[in-house]
């Protein structure tokens, strides 16, 4: 059995290290859906809006939101990042729940650093307080690239976010430069 080589960056992200050929063979790979540990909550919506100083009353007032077509507050797309675990620290007795693996890190490639370059987000059904979020991802493309930061690869991954009813709420496509 081949030993998997990994490297960890200062933020704790673990990269699987491999060759370009090994990485290319992962194009098209799709993960199984995983439920995020935290549901959409009003406090998450307010916390997210605070970070960009967004005064939109749709995020802050139930009374206002009830007068709109949504009949309740809705979550700006970015709130999905607040549904993940922090995992800066956990008690020793607690089992590692995994869950933070993304194809950006788990795809075998030479690079051991990441820099996001391109995003495309499509919203179909807004997420609301109480919704549970299920996510899976698919590798769309890997291309060799060289920038001033170093040599590496552009990895494009699509993420699919569904609610508890199976509705596709959000699809996003992220391209990240993974380099050394």
């Amino acid at each position: 059995m081949t030993e998997i080589k990994t490297e960890t960056d200062p933020s704790g992200l673990v990269y699987v290290i491999g060759t370009e050929e090994e990485g290319m063979s992962w194009i098209g790979k799709e993960s199984t859906p995983v439920e995020e540990p935290y549901a959409i909550e009003i406090r998450l919506i307010e916390h997210f809006a605070e970070g960009i100083e967004d005064p939109n009353p749709l995020y802050w007032s139930d009374e206002y939101a009830q007068q709109t077509r949504w009949a309740s507050r809705i979550a700006p797309w970015g709130v999905i990042v607040l549904c993940k675990e922090h995992k800066v620290w956990r008690p020793e007795w607690m089992e590692d729940s995994g869950g933070q693996d993304t194809f950006f890190c788990s795809t075998p490639l030479p690079g051991n650093k990441l820099l996001a370059t391109d995003y495309e987000v499509e919203c179909y059904v807004p997420l609301k307080p109480g919704d549970n979020v299920f996510i899976n991802e698919k590798i769309i493309d890997i291309k060799p690239k060289t920038f001033s930061l170093g040599e590496g690869h552009h990895i494009t991954v699509e993420n699919y976010f569904r609610n508890q009813n199976g509705d596709l709420c959000i699809k996003d496509s992220r391209t990240v430069f993974r380099y050394r």
Binding site: I52, D54, N56, P57, T68, P76, W77
Partner: peptide, 22 residues
Amino acid sequence: HALFQRVLCAWAGPNAIPRRIK
């Protein structure tokens, strides 16, 4: 992305939806 969503939603109003942001 959130900043783009903020400017679009402030203009479009609460009954709109930003379908795609790239």
